[in-house]
């Protein structure tokens, strides 16, 4: 149900090929004037996407950060390469104690193509 709901509210855009994003790492794609970080969490067989901008010092670098997980629930996260602020890849919430919030995007992979779910009209 949830999946259907999400799918209905977004438009899927092909942004890159799976091989463009290193395993257990990230890469940045350009969508219009926006920069979006895509993460290939191959260890969990999952893909995530967030804004590329780290809100701490306004740097376009999250795609170059290390990913991992934290806590009993194994919350997936990314750490900014500048000062290691970490953000949940699910909720976009800052996990290292600051009041930051980053945008997250749905991702789907069909064969070797990576699609980003963007809100309609974007």
């Amino acid at each position: 149900m949830l999946v259907l709901e999400v799918e209905s509210s977004v438009e899927w855009m092909f942004v890159c090929y799976t091989e463009d994003v290193p395993e257990n790492g990230g890469a940045c794609v350009k969508v219009g004037e926006e920069q979006i970080a895509i993460f290939n969490f191959s260890r969990r067989g999952a893909w995530y996407a967030t804004q590329n901008l780290c809100p701490h010092k306004q740097q376009m670098v999250l795609a170059r950060g290390m990913i991992g997980s934290t806590g009993d629930t194994c919350e997936p996260k990314v750490a900014c390469p500048f000062h290691k602020k970490t953000f949940s890849l699910l909720s976009g919430e800052c996990l290292s104690g600051d009041e930051y919030q980053i945008k997250t995007y749905p991702v789907k992979v069909v064969e070797d193509r990576v699609y980003l779910g963007l809100e309609k009209g974007q």
Partner: peptide, 19 residues
């Protein structure tokens, strides 16, 4: 790293253990 995590660790790793 993946072999190390499988054999001696748990979870998916992080910005401390990876480097």
């Amino acid at each position: 790293y993946d072999e190390a995590l499988d054999q001696f660790g748990k979870g998916d790793g992080c910005e401390l253990c990876k480097p």
